[in-house]
């Protein structure tokens, strides 16, 4: 029997107090700044209340950034899950246990890289003249130039491919591990009923893994919010505003172009409200 002890209080209270302070102070202060008109260049400011928010909704670049962010979120989450499930099932089906271990190790490498490194690696690879990834295209077409990062139609996908390279391969490992934890009986039963291997996965194993796969998708949705490093290094939001996500636009408003810290903060506050509400609702649903 566990006697009453002071342990929960001494272990929990200081940590939670520090976490609360560290998270609430910036969050509340972000709201305060958003209601003012602070600029980087001067220390004077006054309260402007909601005018930053009203300006935002008339700002076409902001609306574009919202749209780019939504596209980014959908493209990276869907592509990651497709790659992860596809490769995970493939490993489960055709790779021997030894080979599985090798693939698992290889597939974890990209996600461990700093995003800045991954972005550079692929920025070199996508270089139209000297890149290794564009080389096959040059070879086939006899030297035509393909520059995925500076074409508005392909830039977002080119950057998203790096995100999927990092997360899709990593999640494939997790999908494999999840498949390995399944009891063999339902799979055997389906085999006796002459189900093909793809039918087994589509109708038996993947539905059995529905809950962990949804949690996995949830994690990816949260991680996809952190697109800044990739975009900052690879395109700076360009060409034009084709890859300018909300955090990129907030950063350039606040720090590169005009130093409008309050305007940037208003954007950050809107992002925060949107993500907290969305993810809290999703989380409750995942848990239920």
């Amino acid at each position: 029997m566990r006697r009453r002890s002071s342990l929960p209080v001494t272990f929990l209270v200081p940590t939670l107090a520090i976490l609360l302070v560290l998270s609430m102070v910036p969050t509340l202060y972000a709201i305060v700044i958003a209601l003012q008109n602070r600029e980087l260049s001067s220390s004077d400011y006054s309260w402007v209340w909601l005018s930053n928010f009203i300006d935002l909704f008339a700002d076409r670049r902001f609306l574009n950034a919202v749209w780019v962010s939504v596209k980014w979120e959908v493209v990276t989450v869907v592509a990651t899950m497709v790659v992860a499930i596809g490769l995970g099932v493939l490993m489960f089906e055709v790779a021997s246990p030894r080979l599985r271990n090798v693939y698992c190790l290889l597939f974890i490498i990209p996600v461990l890289l700093p995003r800045v490194s991954a972005a550079f690696v692929w920025k070199f690879a996508y270089h139209p003249l000297y890149g290794i990834a564009t080389y096959p295209y040059r070879l086939i077409t006899g030297g035509l130039i393909f520059d995925p990062l500076s074409k508005p139609s392909t830039a977002l996908f080119a950057v998203a491919s790096v995100d999927v390279w990092q997360w899709g391969l990593f999640f494939a490992v997790i999908v494999l591990k999840l498949l390995e934890t399944l009891p063999p009986q339902p799979i055997e039963a389906a085999r006796l009923d002459h189900a093909s291997r793809w039918q087994i996965h589509a109708y038996v194993t993947l539905p059995m893994l529905k809950a962990p796969l949804i949690s996995l998708m949830f994690v990816k949705m949260i991680e996809s919010l952190r697109s800044f490093d990739l975009i900052y290094v690879m395109t700076r939001g360009g060409p034009g505003v084709a890859t300018e996500t909300l955090d990129m636009y907030a950063f350039s408003q606040g720090f590169i172009e005009s130093g409008k810290v309050s305007y940037a903060s208003a954007m950050a506050v809107l992002m925060m409200i949107a993500t907290v509400i969305t993810f809290t609702m999703l989380w409750k649903r995942v848990q239920a």
């Binding site: 998270s23 969050t27 972000a30 907030a250 954007m267 950050a268 992002m271 925060m272 993500t275 907290v276």
Partner: peptide, 8 residues
């Protein structure tokens, strides 16, 4: 983890 890094 939901908090956007810019917002912090």
């Amino acid at each position: 983890r939901f908090l956007p890094p810019v917002a912090v």
